[in-house]
Amino acid sequence: MSSQQQKADKATEAEFGSYYLQRTTQELAEDLDKVRNADDFKADSVPFLVRALQQGAVQFSPDDQKRTVSAVKQKEG
C-alpha cells in the first residue's frame, strides 16, 4: 500500500511538474520570447530554461499539487 501510495505521489509530482512548466511558459510567454532572442541564448540553453521554470513546482504542497492535477484532468476531460 505504502509503495503504491509513493508511486501515486511520484506520478502526481511529475504531472504537476509538467503542468507547472506549461503554465509558467504560458504566463511568461512574452518575456520568454525576449530571452530566446537574447545574445546568450544557445541551443543548450533550452534544458536550463526548462529547469529554471520548473524548479518552482516544489513550492507547492503535495495537497495543492494533487488538487491542481485533478482539476486539470477534470478540465481536459
Binding site: D31, K34, V35, A38, D39, D40, F41, K42, S45, F48, L49, A52
Partner: peptide, 8 residues
C-alpha cells in the same frame, strides 16, 4: 535582465 544568464 531578460537574458539566459540572469535566468541561470
Amino acid at each position: 535582465k531578460l537574458t539566459m544568464t540572469w535566468i541561470g
